[in-house]
Nucleic acid binder design. Structure first.
Lengths: 152, 152
DNA sequence: TTGTTTGCAAATACTTTGCATATGC
DNA sequence: GCATATGCAAAGTATTTGCAAACAA
């Protein structure tokens, strides 16, 4: 399990290097470490969470660079932006199609891999009028931890 | 068509008055006009859009009151909060279950009424672990207007 | 070298909080 | 009359922009 993850991480980093070349953007150490950090944190960190983590090994990095880089990663298609209700943006380095469950209490985001959600039909009227590029399902509720805590 | 909408608006306003009583919150003119304005604007306005509109007939109202009232409406269950990518909250006075298509270019939000989305299955692993309260489908893409404009 | 990127600082956008005054019930 | 709500101001949080210096290619 661990080695599989490591392997896929290496693979992703290599892909990332290629993507940078293709888009003519420079492969700076900041970009690399930010992307790597994102891959290491599947818990959908916010910009600040990534910043705090990257700082540990790269103390001179600015929050600003982290923020811009995460947006760049999204533009490059190697990271997704997830947004909740009234919260900062959160990022996801896993671009394989999946969905999310978010806890309304602790704001935790849990990945939902469920193939049935990946082939939902598009309503005809929408389909005919607009260009639909993506469909995601968003589950909301109370996660196990919060339910246990509150006793509800 | 028009009369039906008007009728349902009256009905909603009456329901709103009841809901206020039930929750022991006061029926102020501000709250009424804000809710009414939200019902009159099915295009999912932001706080500022509602504020600009209410000001026209109620010039002394503060942005602040609009903001707090919209949050109150949401707490009362008569309005939903919709959030897009990197944008301010937007509100929806239509609490009948529905979904949204958002244009990635102009950020316009279009209602999607599609019964198939209202009874999606919940993945077993999620169902067993957490308490799922709501499922919404979010379509993203380019709307007809933006597609025409860009010629793509 | 050269155009991109970084780090810093300031600005902007959006939301929230504290509090005195006003007002619905 | 009393508790809640409003309006204002200020603070807080998140993000964006401008620019000189640093750096990848």
């Amino acid at each position: 399990m661990h080695s599989v993850q490591e392997k896929s991480k290496e693979k992703k980093l290599n892909t990332f290097k290629d993507v940078c070349k293709q888009h003519n953007i420079k492969l700076t150490p900041q970009r690399l470490i930010i992307y790597e950090t994102l891959l290491d944190h599947p818990e959908h960190p916010s910009t600040d969470m990534v910043y705090q983590c990257v700082r540990k090994t790269f103390p001179t990095i600015s929050f600003d660079t982290v923020n811009r880089t995460l947006l760049t990663l999204h533009e490059l298609g190697v990271a997704n932006i997830i947004e909740g209700t009234g919260n900062p943006k959160r990022y996801d380095g896993n671009v394989v199609k999946h969905h999310h469950f978010q806890c309304v209490k602790c704001k935790r985001i849990i990945d939902v891999f469920y193939t049935e959600y990946n082939s939902l039909p598009i309503p005809q009227d929408i389909q005919e009028k607009h260009r639909v590029q993506d469909i995601t399902v968003r589950l909301q509720g109370v996660c196990d931890q919060c339910r246990d805590r509150s006793g509800k």
